[in-house]
């Protein structure tokens, strides 16, 4: 446990001692802010029965932040250490591969959660000036953040895998972006299939990320979605672990 906490702390600290962390947070905050401006413009024209959190999920802004920020957060995790050689000093200390993978993932995930905090301020502004009482309702906000945390964990685990496979940060970012966009577009495939009753369509439908997040945004926590996100996250972390171990049998 000591090793896990020591490593997590260092990994988390690297986001904040360099400019990278602040740039990511600033960019995400800018996009969140812009999306809220756009939302409020639209809401000025017509009223909507949906809470603002739900509308936000339906905008492309949320997905742009998610798809772009996660590869940037995860790309350096393993790739940079391999490139600079510190991977060798890390792996020759008495740490286990599980500790390394879990600590790096946890640090990335915590940073990702911090990145979403400024959105609370946007919600507060909406609640305060638009008299949208649902904006900061504990249930909806909790559900929304749970959804953000879960979908983020999935995308970050993809990024971990990509970073563990290469020693180039650029390649890691491109691979995880490709995997992430691929996973995201799977959701649009069922609509292209003729009937919705085929088993293929049903399987693909369960990958419809934004439909699942839609529930979270309304404050509805569906166990199936939670299990779906958690199991996929663990699956990709397991693959990351294998990639890290491969050094021993390659």
């Amino acid at each position: 446990m000591q090793v896990f906490f020591t490593l997590t702390r260092r990994e988390l600290a690297t986001y904040f001692v360099s400019l990278t962390g602040y740039v990511i947070i600033a960019a995400a905050t800018l996009l969140v802010g812009t999306s809220f401006v756009v939302l409020l413009r639209n809401m000025g024209n017509e009223s909507s029965p949906m809470p603002i959190t739900e509308i936000f999920y339906l905008t492309p802004f949320f997905w742009i932040i998610l798809l772009l920020a996660t590869p940037v957060i995860t790309m350096r995790l393993f790739a940079l250490e391999k490139y600079s050689g510190t991977y060798e000093t890390l792996m020759t200390t008495p740490v286990s591969d599980v500790q390394v993978v879990s600590a790096k993932f946890t640090a990335a995930w915590l940073f990702y959660l911090v990145m979403w905090l400024p959105m609370l301020a946007c919600l507060y502004v909406v609640q305060h000036y638009a008299r949208q009482s649902g904006a900061l309702e504990p249930g909806t906000v909790g559900g929304m953040y749970l959804g953000i945390a879960l979908v983020g964990a999935l995308f970050l685990s993809l990024g971990c895998l990509a970073s563990a496979l290469t020693s180039s940060q650029m390649v890691a970012a491109m691979v995880s972006l490709t995997l992430g966009v691929g996973l995201f577009t799977l959701a649009f495939l069922p609509e292209r299939l003729e009937t919705g009753t085929h088993w293929q369509a049903q399987v693909l439908a369960s990958f419809a990320l934004f439909r699942q997040l839609h529930d979270f945004a309304r404050g509805v926590v569906d166990t199936r979605s939670v299990v779906f996100f958690l199991s996929l996250t663990f699956f990709f972390l397991f693959l990351t672990l294998r990639a890290v171990e491969s050094r021993r049998w390659k």
Binding site: R10, T14, V17, S18, S84, G85, T86, T89, T92
Partner: peptide, 15 residues
């Protein structure tokens, strides 16, 4: 039981 310093001595330069 070992202390290892690899070639080119890689360090975390930001620390």
């Amino acid at each position: 039981r070992i202390g290892f310093m690899p070639e080119n001595n890689p360090l975390h330069t930001e620390m």
